[in-house]
């Protein structure tokens, strides 16, 4: 049995995507589903997936273009093309022929994952650096409170953006997740101070946590 994988599936045919999703989940894997090549590239760049499955034909950026862009940027993890035809391309580690068969998927996994995969890094951040982040976070907390009082929307956005990009690296994943949620919310809704309550709570928790 292969270990549970984190799989990104880019497929615009929703019915087929649902079917593949169920089959992959059934086999014990975690799957995130996207329907466009562009979204697939953004998601893959998080390096949060062991395997990316790209449909060839998608609206906008197709699977080949998405793979070409990822490889150009140095993306070094397995990419698998989903296609009704067999396609020869050096961008991909494998081509999985549609319709999707669980057996062929497992065989493909064995072939791809048996290959020479990049090492995975799980690096510890030094306590000094964590402490440095915590000191900066205390400042950030004050800035954010002031911005809330003066309804300074630009600063609220800037700080949230900064936290999304940095907190997780210092072990504060919950803080990054909360900041990410706010950024997404603000894409469609106006900024309001009360939306920041949870973020401020997370900051306070982080500041209280042991070094």
């Amino acid at each position: 049995m292969t270990k549970a994988l984190r799989i990104l599936l880019a497929e615009d045919d929703m019915l087929l995507a649902q079917l593949m999703l169920l089959q992959l989940q059934d086999a014990g894997h975690q799957v995130e589903l996207v329907a466009e090549g562009e979204t697939a590239v953004s998601a893959a760049l998080s390096y949060a997936f062991d395997l990316v499955l790209l449909d060839w034909q998608m609206p906008g950026m197709d699977g080949l273009a998405a793979a070409a862009m990822l490889r150009q940027l140095g993306y070094n993890r397995p990419l698998v093309l989903l296609s009704a035809d067999t396609v020869e391309s050096s961008l991909f580690d494998a081509c999985l022929q549609k319709p999707f068969q669980p057996d062929s998927f497992l065989a493909m996994l064995r072939a791809v994952l048996g290959a020479d995969l990049p090492p995975q890094f799980n690096l510890a951040v030094s306590p000094e650096l964590k402490q440095q982040f915590k000191l900066a976070l205390a400042d950030i907390q004050q800035q954010l409170l002031r911005a809330c009082q003066s309804r300074d929307e630009a600063t609220m956005r800037a700080i949230t953006h900064q936290l999304k990009g940095s907190a997780e690296s210092f072990g504060a994943a919950a803080l990054t997740a909360e900041a990410d949620k706010l950024q997404r919310l603000w894409q469609t809704q106006p900024v309001q101070q009360d939306q920041l309550v949870l973020l401020l709570q997370q900051i306070a928790l982080e500041l209280q946590s042991a070094p």
Partner: peptide
Amino acid sequence: VKSAISEGAASFIVKPFNGDKIFAV
């Protein structure tokens, strides 16, 4: 990402940083 590539960037890292992203670069 596209603007960066067209201006000649060799790669693009999306924060937060981690070892896997740095290794790929």
